[in-house]
């Protein structure tokens, strides 16, 4: 392993997120701040070139907010996001708009993510127009080429979104995200609205495009088997916090955090003869408005001890690249 001093530009991670926080203020009718929803709290990870980071967790765990904060679609409360060493959060709006071409997003809902009144070719050209790239003929050619790249036909350029199925629209969404030659794609549940047989088509497409364009993905999803397939490392989130992060195989073979274990055991397996010990968690996810003190998971944790109720566990590395926030792992 190289020492820190020797790290050159190339070996620096493409994106480094440190201490990311997003607290939404709760205001009363008179505009007085009454408290904060801790949507994202102290999230940190690194993303290398051509790597995929999976972010998993249940609804309200802050995984989507994390993705949107990095793109500054939501302004962060504090923290850093170093893209090639430059802090995205410190950039002025104007400078950041230029950086946007390097970080693009693929959205969950293929039905509402494309303007229904716009021909799909135009939708793909839109980001190029916004950034004033190429002339109009080059843009059309590029849009057709991108359509081909994502497995659609160039002659579908003039069609409207409603003429396409969900899977095809998701392909259009990907083509649009690629129009600016980004390096990082933040994919927010890109396949969860699709049919099973279409999901695999889109996942394969995303893998091919990653190879072809040297892309890095932040893949946000709740379906663990999909995330496992596509990710190199996975971060598990619960109530705004990263509770465990590890390389994919490590996470699935040696999950450490009780929540990760429960999550893994609740994935339905498409094999009726596969029997396993199921950890069925008691109760509901607490409201992020009013999260429990101490370890946020202690209200549902089957192994909780007294310390968990009072003291917040620290997120620390326990094995190579394997970090966890739990009092029981010491």
């Amino acid at each position: 392993m190289q020492s820190l001093l020797q790290k050159t530009n190339d070996e620096r991670p493409l994106l480094e997120v440190k201490g990311l926080k997003k607290h939404f203020p709760i205001t009363s009718a008179l505009g007085k701040v009454q408290g904060y929803v801790q949507a994202v709290n102290n999230v940190e990870f690194t993303l290398n070139k051509r790597e995929t980071l999976g972010l998993v967790g249940e609804s309200g765990c802050g995984k989507s907010t994390t993705g949107r904060t990095i793109l500054r679609l939501i302004e962060p409360t504090s923290g850093q996001a170093l893209y090639k060493g430059k802090d995205l959060f410190q950039l002025k709006q104007k400078d950041f708009q230029k950086m946007r071409s390097k970080l693009q997003m693929v959205f969950q809902d293929p039905h509402s993510s494309i303007n229904p009144k716009q021909r799909i070719g135009r939708a793909i050209e839109e980001p190029m127009k916004i950034h004033k790239l190429y002339d109009s003929k080059e843009r059309s050619e590029r849009a057709m080429e991108l359509l081909n790249k994502v497995g659609l036909r160039g002659d579908q350029y003039y069609r409207y979104p409603h003429e396409f199925s969900g899977g095809q629209r998701q392909r259009i969404g990907i083509a649009r995200a690629l129009a600016l030659n980004p390096e990082i794609l933040i994919c927010d549940e890109p396949v969860s609205a699709l049919d099973v047989s279409i999901q695999s088509q889109v996942i394969n497409l995303m893998e091919e495009l990653q190879e072809q364009f040297d892309l890095s993905y932040i893949f946000i999803a709740h379906d663990l088997s999909v995330v496992r397939h596509i990710s190199d490392q996975i971060g598990v989130m619960y109530l705004g916090e990263l509770v465990e992060k590890a390389p994919t195989d490590e996470l699935f073979s040696h999950p450490l955090h009780p929540y990760t274990k429960a999550l893994l055991s609740s994935i339905p397996v498409a094999n009726p003869e596969f029997k396993r010990e199921k950890i069925v968690l008691k109760g509901d996810i607490p409201s992020p408005l009013n999260p429990p003190a101490g370890c946020k998971f202690h209200t549902r944790c089957p192994y909780a001890i007294k310390r968990c109720k009072n003291e917040e566990p620290v997120f620390k590395e326990v094995a190579k690249n394997h970090s966890v926030a739990c009092h029981l792992i010491d």
């Binding site: 199925s165 899977g167 095809q168 049919d195 099973v196 047989s197 279409i198 999901q199 695999s200 088509q201 996942i203 394969n204 893998e207 663990l224 088997s225 999909v226 496992r228 397939h229 994919t248 195989d249 699935f252 994935i267 397996v269 498409a270 094999n271």
Partner: peptide
Amino acid sequence: GLLKSIPHLDGDRTQKLNVIKGVV
């Protein structure tokens, strides 16, 4: 095809997912 196209928890991650061609 359906059974093969879902990623399995014990599947080989380096292998491509099986795909049913076309759309419904």
